[in-house]
Computed example of a mutant assay.
Amino acid sequence: MTTPVSDSPDQIRQRQERSWSRSAHGWAGRRATFEAGARVVSHRLADAVGLTLGLNLDLADLACGAGEPTLTLARRLGPLGTLVGLDLAHGMIVEARRAAVQERVEDRVRFEIGDLEALPLADGSQDAATCRWGLMFAVDPSLALREVVRILKPGGRFAASVWDHARHVPMIALARDAAQATLNAPAPTPDAPEPFRLADRDALRARFLDAGFEPDSINVEEQMVTWEFLDAEEYCAFHLEVSAALADLYHQRPYEAQAAFRQVMSESAHQFADPHGIVRMPCRALIWQARTLN
């Protein structure tokens, strides 16, 4: 679930590709649950790059996962615009293409394999780019931001969401804590790719500046995201389905450890349950916006 400090960048990316590809089917299966909460961020990102309904833009969605927010962007894009969704994991691209067909927007978007730190796009080719909860998983986020600057046209817009500090994101943090407490999951190593890595606003602003974005354009806003689960058991099942690394760790442990994990997850989720047992977890995302120099 974490990255040993001795691993090379290429080894980290290879492991990420394998893990995310193996998780892709789970993400596709849980699309409705996740997007019910996450769609507010998808629309915020679309608004942030100026994508109004019917507008023609050349647009890239980076670290697109199983197809969002790319599909949300596709439904807004004008007929002369172009849209590419890029992700490191082949399995995610397979699911994204399948989702595009299901949503009947396959003629508006293409999906390709692409590393955040080596984007397969030409210099100055894009009017805008988005990245929903992917930047913190780049091996080198600063390099990823420089790549975004490279592919954007002068004055091009970029919008990205990252997570705030763990205490503000219980949906992820409680599962991480439960795995560490009961399954012997290792704690994250310093600056390893993980969900809360870019929560420090000053530090991430400095990365935007160093990448070459227009200083006065760099802005961050908070966005609350609430996920809903039928009960505490569904909350636990969700995490085991969308994380191959967690599922591997869980199934490698004896029954007693598995039971302890489920118990801790249940107790954690019950903090957010209503009288009917429905679990609603409010989490705080950070929406970053910036433009390249004209």
Rank of each mutant, 00 (worst) to 15 (best):
N184W: 06
I218D: 04
H165N: 13
R197G: 07
A63N: 03
R30F: 15
W133G: 11
A273S: 05
M265W: 04
F272Y: 14
L135H: 09
S125A: 11
R284Q: 15
A166H: 10
A247S: 13
P9K: 07
A28E: 09
Q180I: 13
G65Y: 00
L51S: 05
T82L: 12
S268G: 14
G54A: 02
D210F: 00
D202G: 03
I287W: 03
E267Y: 03
G212A: 00
R108V: 07
P195R: 13
R75V: 15
Q16Y: 00
V264M: 04
G114Y: 02
R262A: 07
D7P: 08
G134W: 09
R18A: 13
V5A: 07
T72N: 05
M224W: 15
A159N: 09
D47E: 02
R205A: 05
A185R: 13
P170L: 01
D164P: 12
G85N: 15
R201F: 11
D191W: 12
A63P: 04
T226K: 06
A32F: 14
R253H: 10
A138T: 06
G114T: 13
V220M: 12
N56Q: 05
V109Y: 05
A46D: 09
A166E: 14
E95M: 12
Q16D: 01
A89D: 11
L86F: 03
P4G: 09
